[in-house]
Amino acid sequence: MTLANMTPTSVAGTISRPSRRTLTLRYIRRNKGLAIGLAILVVLALFTIIGLLVIDPKKAYPLSAALKQPPSLKYPFGTDFFGRDLLAAMVVGTWQTAFIGVLAGGIGTLVGVVLGFIAAYFGGWIDAGIRTICQILTPIPVLLIQVVVAGSLDKRDVTIVTMAMIVAMLAWMGPTLVIRAQVLTMKERQFVAVAKLSGVSDMGIIFKEILPNLLPFIAAAFVGQVFGAVFASFYLAVLGLGPLREPLLGNIIWAAQSQGAFFNGWWWWPLEPAFAMILILGALALVNMGLDELANPRVRKTE
């Protein structure tokens, strides 16, 4: 850390502080990645929400439209080999992708936060046990284990929710280790010692003293988990292990690939979910990096 990076904050502290809102706005302006990422996510959310309100979701399923139509006025995104209106499929698919991401990411983060707190706060053999399990499971390529789980399920049992569960099942190790490390450093801080001396209970210290200070880390871990979950469910679907009837973005690509879409000249079919995926993953990556910067004062950009 250089001196040049540290002085401006202390200077800004002595002058009268602008309101919280201006500070947030100014921070967003400095942290452009976060701003762009959030903007793309908002646009995608609007696309799905308005789409779900305007379009008949049944059109996203087979035999609801003319077959193999290139993009036109009637079908702005074209239709596929199975007679799905791809505009509707994209709306429903993006919604389902977001659903899987948020559900699986939420579960992974929650399990990670709970285990991380338990490990760091109680220490001893509990900590050693949790840490060892995380370390042993980390090198195992999660996607492949997910392939085994998804492959072992009956095809009828694979739904959007089971997809999220499969993805969440092996994704809690990262957040556990991150939160554990953060709680460990937090535990040694003075405000925790003061709280302990003034007789605050264990739970009080965890929920009132440590947790609020960890929120930026938890937010960053959550976005990272959502990214991972979207990525993993996409890969599973591309391998043909997703809920095959649903217009999940990865499923559309899988279907296009099995019908040889490019060989047959139906270029719009695989290309649209690919672009949607780029937008989703790119936005999440930008937000993730932006939050990392917010959570980690060492790299935080100051005015």
């Binding site: 990525f231 690509i253 490019f262 270029w267 290309l271 690919a274 780029i278 790119g282």
Partner: peptide, 15 residues
């Protein structure tokens, strides 16, 4: 290009 998974990169290149 970091956010683009190799599979999607593959589809774009194919196209």
């Amino acid at each position: 290009l970091t956010g683009v998974p190799p599979v999607i990169m593959g589809i774009l290149l194919l196209f």
